[in-house]
Simulated scan of single mutants.
Amino acid sequence: MTQTSARTRILVRPVDYGDPSDAAALVELLDGYAQDMAGGGEPLAVGVKQGLAQALHQRPQAFSVMAWAQDQPSARGAEIPVGLINCFEGFSTFACKPLVNVHDVVVVPAWRGQRIAQRMLQEVAVMARSRGACKLTLEVLSGNLSAIRSYEREGFAAYMLDPQMGSAQFFQKYLD
């Protein structure tokens, strides 16, 4: 199954890190994303694959949602994972409230263009509001124009306090 038909529906729900099928689907989707050029072009390390779900499960500030394609009527076992978003709660000192960083957005290539990311982002927003979050944040590569358009359709915009100071940039520093 590679596209939505009249009989196919997309279900979006939170990931249960302790459920073996959810954990396996999370790793499968994230590994596929990591191998994509937008994700760095390299597979996840074996240790990451083995420990990721448990590590996320141990962090109360982490949550994920997954999109599943399902032929109707069908049991949960017949669902195919087609999208994933991993999120982490942070804190806005200016608002004195939690914020949620959308860390990974994955849609299986054969399922792109069907607004699956938007549906997952809508679920993330619901979950973020339930945590009292004041905003969602995310990073996107400047060359990933289709993702940028997708995020803009959902109301995301470049972070700016004062136009004279410009937009925020994302930096990183690896620690040994």
Rank of each mutant, 00 (worst) to 15 (best):
I10E: 07
I10V: 15
L11N: 13
V12D: 07
R13S: 07
R13T: 05
P14T: 09
P14I: 07
V15N: 01
D16H: 03
D16I: 01
D16Y: 00
Y17T: 02
G18I: 06
D19T: 05
D19H: 12
P20T: 11
S21P: 00
S21I: 08
D22G: 05
A23W: 04
L26H: 08
L26Y: 05
L26P: 01
L26A: 13
V27P: 11
L29G: 11
L30G: 00
L30P: 02
D31V: 09
D31M: 10
D31A: 09
G32R: 14
Y33V: 03
Y33L: 08
A34V: 03
Q35I: 03
Q35E: 13
D36F: 14
M37S: 12
A38W: 04
A38M: 10
A38G: 07
A38L: 08
G39V: 13
G40E: 13
G41N: 12
P43N: 10
P43K: 13
P43G: 10
A45R: 15
A45V: 07
A45K: 14
A45M: 14
A45I: 03
V46D: 15
V46C: 05
V46A: 15
G47N: 14
V48L: 00
K49W: 00
K49T: 01
K49R: 02
G51W: 04
G51M: 06
L52K: 03
L52C: 08
A53M: 09
Q54M: 05
A55V: 13
L56A: 12
H57Q: 15
R59I: 05
R59C: 08
P60C: 04
P60H: 11
P60V: 10
P60E: 14
P60T: 08
A62K: 06
F63T: 07
S64P: 02
S64M: 00
V65M: 03
V65N: 04
V65S: 01
M66R: 02
A67D: 09
A67P: 12
A67V: 13
W68R: 12
A69D: 07
Q70D: 06
Q70W: 05
Q70M: 15
Q70F: 03
Q72D: 11
P73N: 07
P73G: 07
P73H: 08
P73L: 10
P73K: 11
R76M: 05
A78L: 12
E79Y: 04
I80M: 12
P81E: 11
P81W: 04
P81V: 07
G83R: 07
L84F: 15
L84Q: 12
L84R: 10
L84P: 11
N86R: 03
N86P: 03
F88Y: 15
F88Q: 08
E89M: 11
E89T: 15
E89H: 06
G90M: 09
F91E: 05
F91C: 05
F91A: 07
S92I: 12
S92M: 10
T93Y: 09
F94G: 06
A95V: 13
A95M: 14
C96Q: 08
K97C: 00
K97I: 01
P98S: 14
P98E: 04
V100L: 04
